[in-house]
Each structure stands twice: as C-alpha cells, then as structure tokens.
Design a protein around this nucleic acid. Structure first.
Length: 423
RNA sequence: GGAGAAUUCGCCUAGUGGCCUAUGGCGCCAGCUUGGAAAGUUGGUUGGGUGCAAGCCCUCAUGGGUUCGAAUCCCAUAUUCUCCGCCA
C-alpha cells in the first residue's frame, strides 16, 4: 500500500510511477478524491459521535423527571450516528479498494517499459565453450541418475520430479552453503510455514495479479506459498520492531509451490519451471533511508553465491513494467545456460520500500520514539533451479559433472558426479 | 473430531450497564535523594485516526448486535489451554 501522505502531498510523483510501469494513472486522481471524501465523512461521523457521548453522559446524572426526554433525544442521535458511521465506513472501503490498486512507487532512475526494457548492470564470467556436444540438464540428470522426471510425473503429474542420490545431496549442499554465507552476514535462519492465512497472502501483495499462480486449500482457507517471502514478511506483522541495533535479517528456507497456470507451453523440459522446489530466501526489515544500500548488499551476497558455484551470469535492473506490485526496484541475476544459449533467472531481489510493511503494519521507533513504517527487501540465495546451471556449466565430455570447489565440503569432499554404471 | 475454560495497555492483574478519562504490581524512562549506587520517593509509560490548532474520535482478541450509554449483556469468528478420541 502506498503512503497516503504522498497521495495528498505529491500525487504527481505517483502518477509518474504509474506511467513508468505502464499502469493507469487516472486511478491516482480517483484515490485523491476518495481520500478527501473519506476524511470528510469521518469528521462528520466523529463530531456526531462526540455529541452522542456527551448526551449519554448527561443521562447518568439526570433526575428521574429529566430522563425520558434525554433518552428520547439520545435515540434520535443514535440513529444519526449509525447512519453517519455507515457512510464513513463505505467511504473507507472505497478508498481502500482504490488505493490498494496503486502499485509501489518505483525508485527514480530505473528503466521504464516492460519485460524487455531491462538494463544490464554487469556481466561476470565467460560463456562456456565446449569441445564436445554439451548435454542439457535433463540428459545429465538421467545419465547421472540424479533427476528422475519420469517418476515425478507418475507420482504427481507434469512439472514434478525427484532429486535422487547426488542430485538430492547437491541441492542440500547448495542450501547449506548459502545458509552459511547468510549466517556470516547477520541473517537469522528460519524454516518457515508454507501454508498461510489469506490476510498474510494478501498483505504481501500476491493475491493481486498472481492470484491464479497460487495453490489454495478451500477446506482450510489457507494458501500454499510460492516463496518463503510470504511467511518472512508476515513474521513481524502488526508488530513494532526494534531497529535501533540495526536491521532485522532472516534467511528463510522453504519448499515453494507454484501453479504455473499461465505458462502452459513454457519450459516444459526439465526442472526449470516446476510446481514445487526449494529456496533459501533473504529478507530484511530496515529503516527506509537504508533500504537502497541494503538492496546492494543482498545483490552482493547473491553474486557471492553465483561465483562460489562458478557460474557465468549477468545482473539486470528490471524495468518498471516488469516489477511486482510491491517492488520499487528489482535486480535479477541470470546465469548462462549452455543448452539454451541464453541467460535464465536464478535470483531476484526486490526493494519493497515501505509498501509491503504498510500493508502488514510493520513499524519501528525512530530516534524521537515515533513509530514509522519499516522498509522490507528480499532476495534469492539459492533455489532448486540453480542445479540446471550448475550441471550444464560443469559437465565434461563423458557426461560427468565437476562439483564446484566451494560446494565440495558440503558433499563429503566429492569432486565429480560420475555417470551411473548399471550392472 | 468431541467437551470445557480462557483472551484487559511489554508482563502479571482488578473490573458483572453510567463515578472506566480502565485498577494495582513488575519492568522501563525521567526527576529528587546519594560521594556514587542500592533502597526510598515523585512523575511518566497501549497504539491508531482526524484536524492549522485547541481538541475530538477509535482501541479491553476480532467482527456484528442489544442499549440513550458496553471491558461488562447477546451472537459469530480467531487464538490459547485442559481432558477425551484419532494419529502417517
């Protein structure tokens, strides 16, 4: 939710953001209007309510003779208060409807436009050139007997898989390495719930345009989360957190569930786009003025992980139109995937400024003891999808895969995954 | 799944329709006291909305209702606890 003070003081700034995103800017005027109406109705209700409170007080001290007249006057007032309250409530509902539709105000200077209008910030590493015909991760997964897609489909349907043997261990190793890195940088490990209440799902902004991406369990009125960001953002919901000693940082590990409803024909091969995967997500609660620096810190940690996995990647500054509704800026890093001869997203880090925290009512006390809305940021430190890039990048002519040195300590020193030789 | 109990300002707690502008204690903050501290003592200490402001409104788990008037009465929901049942 955007800051209603900004709506009053500088609606033009919000309109500029809406334009950069390619969103409707007339909704800003609508919100300004709704806000003014609501405040007017609220004042009308409150002054009537004050009158009623005063009148009710008189009844208590009145004599027997005076009472009937006072009570009758009170009855009339009560009717008027009730009517005024209904109007004020309706105005508030309308205001919320409108204001919730406005997406976060983007940070000035980010690229305008849609998905293809990103800016490349940097490219790191060289795109692998093989002196043999490289295999894709599906072929490698079969050859090494570490990804079993066929049986995943048999058990659960399309876009499901089993990680097996070294595949399973590789994922856990990667997660552990990421968790070590995060812990060294002041992130507290959390294993989060993956089923959440509607308020939390709505508060994180996922029930908007992503609603059909989300698994919902009607019998229990719970949502399966597509990222631990949801639980991490909900963690301090309705709290006044203490940021006087610095930001609160969490590294949340969870399984993630996505319906992939709108992507029927895309990435049908392999484990690039699946209904269920695991992810280690960083999440920071911080004072708004420090949010942009924190964003760079998250990005630096993501890069450290990519480098530890010896991957070639680029970092992009996502264009306004491709941002989630809560994000004011988003950096993605994309690893080079040899079989596809293209970059694929491995991490995504968003600065949500105060937008998400305002919805979730997460505040802190500033130096003067006043409560202020906190800023939130999130970023990916590792996901199952990384296996695609790791396997394809480090494959060798015989189909074996070299394990990046940094991961070996988490795999009992194993250096290479060899093709399985069946008896 | 069944039965019962509970939910008050960080924590504990008083409170059974108007004097609740919510009691008291702990904790915390500030002052006094002190050589300094402890003890003592005085004051402060939920959060939010609206208004230029004075102020006003809301907040006793949440949402409704009854009433001139609700922490208090009624209904629904949530959460916690106890017992029984079930349990990969």
């Amino acid at each position: 939710m955007i800051d209603s003070n900004l709506l009053r003081d500088n609606p033009e700034a919000i309109k500029a953001s809406q334009r950069a995103r390619g969103n409707d800017e007339s909704i800003v005027d609508e919100a300004v209007q709704a806000d003014a109406t609501w405040r007017k109705c609220l004042q009308a209700y409150e002054s009537l309510r004050a009158e009623q409170n005063a009148a009710a007080k008189l009844v208590g001290g009145a004599s027997k003779e005076e009472r009937p007249a006072l009570i009758q006057a009170g009855q009339v007032l009560a009717e008027r208060v009730k009517a005024a309250l209904e109007i004020a409530n309706a105005a508030e509902v309308h205001l919320n409807e409108v204001i919730w539709k406005i997406e976060n105000v983007v940070i000035e200077g980010i690229p305008a436009g849609g998905e293809e209008n990103f800016t490349v910030i940097k490219e790191v590493g060289t795109k692998q050139i093989f002196d043999f015909e490289p295999r894709d991760h599906v072929a490698l997964g079969e050859l090494l007997d570490i990804i079993d897609i066929e049986r995943g489909v048999k058990v659960s349907g399309s876009r499901f898989y089993f990680l097996k043997g070294w595949g399973a261990r590789l994922e856990l190793a990667m997660m552990n390495m990421a968790l070590d890195l995060a812990s060294k940088h002041d992130f507290t490990a959390l294993i989060t719930p993956t089923l959440v209440r509607p308020e939390v799902m709505a508060g994180t902004g996922f029930l908007g345009e992503h609603a059909d991406e989300i698994y919902y369990l009607p019998a229990d009125d719970l949502y399966l989360t597509g990222t631990s960001e949801v639980a991490l953002a909900g963690y301090h919901r309705d709290e006044i957190i203490d940021l006087s000693e610095g930001p609160l940082r969490y590294a949340g590990w969870s399984t993630c569930y996505r319906r992939e409803a709108g992507s029927a024909g895309r990435d049908t091969r392999g484990i690039l786009r699946v209904h269920q995967f695991n992810k280690l997500e960083m999440f920071s609660y911080i004072k708004p003025e420090d949010a942009e620096n924190e964003h760079l810190k998250l990005l630096a940690l993501e890069e450290a992980m990519l480098q530890a996995c010896e991957l070639s990647y680029r970092v992009i500054d996502t264009a306004a139109g491709d941002l989630g509704s809560s994000a004011a800026r988003k950096y993605d890093s994309e690893a080079w995937v040899p079989s596809q001869q293209t970059y694929r997203e491995l991490t995504s880090s968003s600065n949500c400024t105060t937008y998400q925290a305002r919805r979730l009512n997460v505040r802190y006390r500033d130096e003067n003891g006043k409560t202020q809305t906190a800023a939130t940021l999130n970023g990916t430190l590792a996901t199952t999808r990384w296996l695609v890039a790791i396997l394809e990048t480090h494959q060798q002519a015989d189909g074996s895969v070299r394990i990046p040195a940094a991961l070996r300590p988490y795999l009992g020193g194993q250096e290479v995954i060899e093709p399985k030789v069946r008896a």
